[in-house]
C-alpha cells in the first residue's frame, strides 16, 4: 500500500499534465473558453436562486439572507463532489485506451477526475468571495483557516469514493446509471438548498450519517454564518473516515487492477 502511495506521488507530473489537458480540452473551441469556469457556477447559482426565491417561496425560514450566498456555499462544493463522482466512476472506461494500450498506472485516471474538478471549484471561489464581499458578509481569519482543511477533507473523501466506484464500474457498468440517480437524491438529502435547522429531529440522525452534510455545514459555518466554527469535531471525524475510505478504496482498486486491461 505504501509503495502504491509513493508510486502515486511519483506520478504527480503525469497527473498535473493530464489535469491541464483536461482543463484545456474542455473549453477548446468555445467562444468564452476558460471563462466558462466562472460563468458555469454563476449560471447554476442563478437558476437555483430563481427557483428557490421566486418560484418556491421559502416562507418562515429566517436567518437565511442573502439566500444566494447561502446557496452558493453548498452548491459550489457539491458541484465538485458530484462531478468528480460521475466523471471518476467513468474514468477507467473513458481512458480505456490508455489502460489497454499503454503501460499506465490506472489510478491516475480517477485522481485526475477529482483534481480537475477541484480546479473548477477553485475557479468558482472568486465568484463566491465576490458575493461575500458584495453583501458585506463578515469573514474572520480564524474561521477562514479552516477553509483549506474542509477542502482537504472533501478531497480525500471524494477520492476514496471515486476509487471504489471507478474500479467497480469496470465490472458493473450499471453503476454509472445508478450513480446519476443516486446523486440527485443525495443532493436533496444534503442541507444545501435548505439549512440544517429546518430538518426535523427524526431526519437529523439520518443527516448526520450523510458525510456531505458535514462538509456543506462546514462551508456554510465558515463563510455564511457569523460566529465561531463549531462543526470542527464532526469535520475531523469525517477526515478520519475519509482517510480510511481512501485507503480501503485504493486497496480495492489495487486488487482489481489486473482485471482492468481485460475488462475495459
Amino acid at each position: 500500500m505504501l509503495s502504491n502511495l509513493r508510486q502515486l506521488f511519483r506520478c504527480r507530473g503525469l497527473i498535473q499534465i493530464l489535469v491541464a489537458r483536461e482543463l484545456k480540452a474542455r473549453y477548446r473551441g468555445s467562444v468564452l473558453g476558460f471563462f466558462w469556469s466562472f460563468v458555469n457556477p454563476l449560471l447554476l447559482l442563478l437558476v437555483y436562486s430563481f427557483v428557490f426565491t421566486v418560484i418556491i417561496q421559502r416562507g418562515e425560514i429566517v436567518d437565511l439572507e442573502p439566500y444566494a450566498v447561502f446557496l452558493f456555499c453548498g452548491l459550489l462544493p457539491w458541484t465538485w463532489f458530484s462531478a468528480s463522482l460521475s466523471e471518476g466512476a467513468n474514468a477507467l472506461l473513458v481512458g480505456g485506451n490508455l489502460i489497454k494500450k499503454v503501460m499506465f498506472p490506472a489510478e491516475i485516471l480517477p485522481v485526475v477526475a477529482v483534481v480537475s474538478n477541484m480546479i473548477h471549484f477553485v475557479f468558482g471561489l472568486p465568484i463566491l468571495f465576490g458575493f461575500l464581499w458584495f453583501y458585506a458578509m463578515p469573514l474572520r481569519l480564524t474561521e477562514l483557516v479552516w477553509f483549506p482543511v474542509v477542502m482537504a477533507v472533501q478531497f480525500i473523501l471524494t477520492l476514496g469514493l471515486v476509487m471504489v466506484l471507478a474500479a467497480l464500474t469496470v465490472h458493473f457498468r450499471d453503476i454509472k446509471d445508478l450513480l446519476a440517480n443516486l446523486l440527485t437524491l443525495w443532493f436533496f438529502a444534503t442541507p444545501i438548498i435548505y439549512p440544517m435547522s429546518v430538518v426535523p429531529p427524526r431526519g437529523k440522525a439520518f443527516m448526520d450519517l450523510n458525510p456531505f452534510s458535514h462538509l456543506a455545514i462546514s462551508y456554510q459555518e465558515i463563510l455564511f454564518y457569523d460566529g465561531p466554527f463549531g462543526h470542527w469535531k464532526w469535520l475531523l471525524a469525517l477526515a478520519v473516515a475519509g482517510a480510511v475510505l481512501f485507503l480501503l478504496g485504493y486497496w480495492l482498486f489495487d486488487r482489481l487492477r489486473d482485471s482492468f486491461a481485460d475488462e475495459v
Binding site: 503525469l14 499534465i17 489537458r21 484545456k24 473551441g29 485506451n97 489497454k100 494500450k101 499503454v102
Partner: peptide, 24 residues
C-alpha cells in the same frame, strides 16, 4: 501497440507530444 493512444483530439500536436511522452 496502438500509436497515439493517449492523444487528446482537442489539443495541439505539440501538447500531445509532451503528454504522450510523459505517459511513456
Amino acid at each position: 501497440i496502438e500509436l497515439g493512444a493517449g492523444f487528446h483530439p482537442e489539443i495541439s500536436g505539440r501538447e500531445n507530444v509532451f503528454i504522450n511522452g510523459i505517459m511513456l
